[in-house]
């Protein structure tokens, strides 16, 4: 009886460390102007990494663009994914497997192929090189994740609650606000965070259809390898929006509407 909480605490600590340590090392690396083995701590501290990260001025714009696109793609994916997730979650289809495969297709096909196809078609449709085009390109990757997470929230339990609401005379809008949303809130929050993360980290499709519009991963990627300090500095900034998204949605999920 005594050992279990201890073990659990130790396990929690280990897991916590496993998450925190890489970030902590990133934090040290970002401020290490000189850090050569065998020294355990950097020989020189400084801000060269951040200066290089913000050198061109496109970095701020890139983060702004990425946030706008991630919010847009996630919102669109939730709107489009909601009906699909309902149908799948309530097992109303006779052959859900086919739909699942079709939905997951953008995840199964190599991103390289998806990117090349998107570029070509977006050029034909003249929606290339715009934030709107980027939202649609990210949607192809975000939508499957959102649907797959969201469908877990629907099922007979939710439909029964909604039926109760209907018999009590709730209007469709109130039913949505008072019954459906609160009961799927945790999965909705998870789908939102995941959608945001998937869009936030899109490198290939951002490059393929962005036509040089600055986006966060595009700014970060070239520094990985050649310049660890600048890469670390950018990575520290790179994790902020996803962490914020996580905190905001976690709070939304726990507090009933």
């Amino acid at each position: 009886m005594v050992r279990r909480p201890l073990l659990a605490r130790a396990g929690g600590l280990a897991i916590g460390l496993a998450f925190a340590l890489p970030l902590a090392i990133l934090g040290v690396r970002a401020f290490a102007d000189t850090w050569r083995a065998p020294a355990l701590v950097p020989q020189d501290w400084g801000l060269r990494g951040f200066e290089a990260a913000f050198g061109g001025g496109a970095t701020v714009e890139a983060f702004g663009n990425s946030i706008v696109v991630a919010l847009g793609a996630t919102a669109l994916a939730l709107a489009l994914g909601w009906p699909a997730a309902r149908v799948l979650g309530e097992r109303r289809l006779r052959r859900p497997g086919v739909v699942f495969v079709a939905l997951a297709m953008p995840l199964l096909v190599p991103p390289y192929a998806t990117g090349a196809g998107l570029t070509e078609w977006f050029i034909r449709l003249r929606i290339i090189d715009s934030l709107g085009g980027l939202v649609l390109a990210h949607l192809t990757a975000v939508l499957p994740y959102v649907v797959l997470v969201l469908l877990a929230g629907f099922g007979t339990k939710v439909t029964e609650l909604e039926d109760m609401g209907r018999t009590l005379g709730l209007s469709p809008a109130r039913r949505l606000a008072w019954v459906t949303l609160p009961s799927v809130a945790p999965t909705l929050a998870a789908a939102t965070v995941l959608g945001f993360l998937v869009s936030w980290s899109q490198y290939g499709s951002s490059l393929a259809v962005g036509g040089g519009l600055p986006m966060a991963p595009l700014v970060l990627f070239p520094f990985i390898g050649p310049d660890p300090q600048t890469a670390a500095a950018l990575s520290l900034l790179y994790v902020i929006p996803p962490i914020l998204a996580l905190l905001v949605t976690a709070r939304a999920a726990s507090s009933p509407l």
Binding site: G56, T119, I123, R124, I128, G212, L218, P222
Partner: peptide, 29 residues
């Protein structure tokens, strides 16, 4: 404007995609 890429083949890819889509002007690169 400087468009930073990790690999110049990405830029060439973009030019090829424009060609495949049948566009002969207005390219982003």
């Amino acid at each position: 404007e400087r468009v930073p890429v990790g690999d110049t083949a990405d830029a060439v890819q973009r030019v090829i995609a424009q060609r495949r889509a049948g566009r002969e002007s207005g390219g982003a690169v």
